[in-house]
Design a protein around this nucleic acid. Structure first.
Lengths: 219, 219
DNA sequence: AACTTTATCAACACTGTGTCGAGTTGGTCA
DNA sequence: TGACCAACTCGACACAGTGTTGATAAAGTT
């Protein structure tokens, strides 16, 4: 049973423990080592041994603190996701009261910033999602949160006559949110083709506005 | 040196060989086994041993035909990508002469169909891209091809006055193409949130048209 | 019939994961 | 204070997977 709870005193949700003693700083050391190594190379090229050594402990001792490498990264992603959720709520609060164009830009900028400031972790999350159901579930919740909020905004704009009818609001929201995810990911990795980091927001905001407020009639 | 050419007679590009004898059918058996197993489970859960046994040979013999598991999948992806490129050129030919709305829908439908009909391979490609530079490069070329074509279409539409000015055509094309990739991937995996398979095309076409022909002015 | 090429696989070397059990250490309370 | 317990540590092991080596067989080629 990989990547599931199984630590010695193991009570908590994922794989982290609830210890209090000096082990607390060991746990932190492991998390910090993981973040540091992720700046250098992808998750797939980091071993449990790398994490243990980086934290100054032996490999078996690592397993006292985390049930697997994945659990470490999941813990780190948890925190990133929580921060991003904060950005989102804040941004949405602004958006609730008119001046949508500027508010939308602000919202996308904040979210983009939240992930860009932890680029390495964001990339690791994408990698982990490919093979870890728990990571998939966590990311899924993040996306659902965004989609729900964006859906509400679109429906409100349509209700007050500011936006024309069109595809179901939720479908539109899903596509737009997924576009953001992919475009941002590409910009972070620098793959080609990808948008320049400074152009990401301009392009995304433009497409969002056109998708929400425009109609689909060519000349 | 994993995933690079290294087979016995090894001349060709990647890791496939140029054998002619009875080994030809072994090679095909390996490729077929890979495709079959990918329908059942992700690439990360398929071992070289699985492929060898599936093809009725021992593991060392597998290495006579392919230098690694990745090389097998790369060969399969190559073919998918070639087929998709065919769809694209065909679709673009239609698009070159007016009636853009219908032509665009047709183009996106064909492309979507090309990948949906080989869903398992498409998903494996996404997984492999995460950790294999060669897969990344291959996919990159596919995306660049699309972006180049779409950029040309947008510029042509702007030149003939059918589409308004806006973000640089290439930037717009990158975001739209990446949106398609992500939305399609999500629909294939059935993750949540994701668009229903029957709704994908409608939603994407709508956003493309609005992004290309609309303006970004809210009411 | 010598020789080469193609094909095959048992056995090996290596890397990485996760577990077991035998410790050590520091605090607590009888 | 000393018996005890929980937190903590790690050497040694069992396993799974990858890729290589070398010996061998079977099919052409000259």
């Amino acid at each position: 049973m990989p990547a599931t709870s199984k630590a010695k005193p193991a009570p908590a949700g994922r794989g982290r423990r609830a210890v209090r003693a000096s082990g607390d700083e060991r746990e932190r050391a492991i998390l910090e080592t993981a973040e540091r190594l992720l700046e250098e190379r992808p998750l797939s090229e980091i071993s449990v041994d790398d994490l243990a050594r980086g934290a100054g402990i032996s490999r078996p001792t690592f397993y006292f603190y985390f049930p697997s490498k994945d659990a470490v990264v999941l813990t780190i992603i948890d925190r990133l996701v929580a921060a991003a959720a904060g950005s989102r709520e804040e941004a949405l609060a602004t958006m609730a009261e008119g001046e949508l164009r500027a508010a939308l830009r602000q919202a996308l900028t904040d979210l983009y910033g939240a992930f860009r400031s932890r680029r390495a972790v964001t990339l690791a999350a994408a990698e982990l999602r490919m093979r870890n159901p728990e990571a998939r579930e966590l990311w899924s919740q993040v996306m659902e949160g965004w989609v729900a909020d964006v859906t509400a905004v679109i429906e409100a704009e349509r209700a007050r006559g500011a936006a024309p009818a069109g595809q179901p609001a939720r479908d539109l929201a899903i596509a737009l949110v997924q576009m953001n995810e992919r475009v941002q990911y590409a910009a972070f990795t620098g793959e080609s083709p990808s948008l320049d980091e400074e152009r990401v927001i301009d392009v995304l905001v433009d497409i969002w506005l056109r998708a929400i407020y425009g109609t689909a009639e060519p000349s």
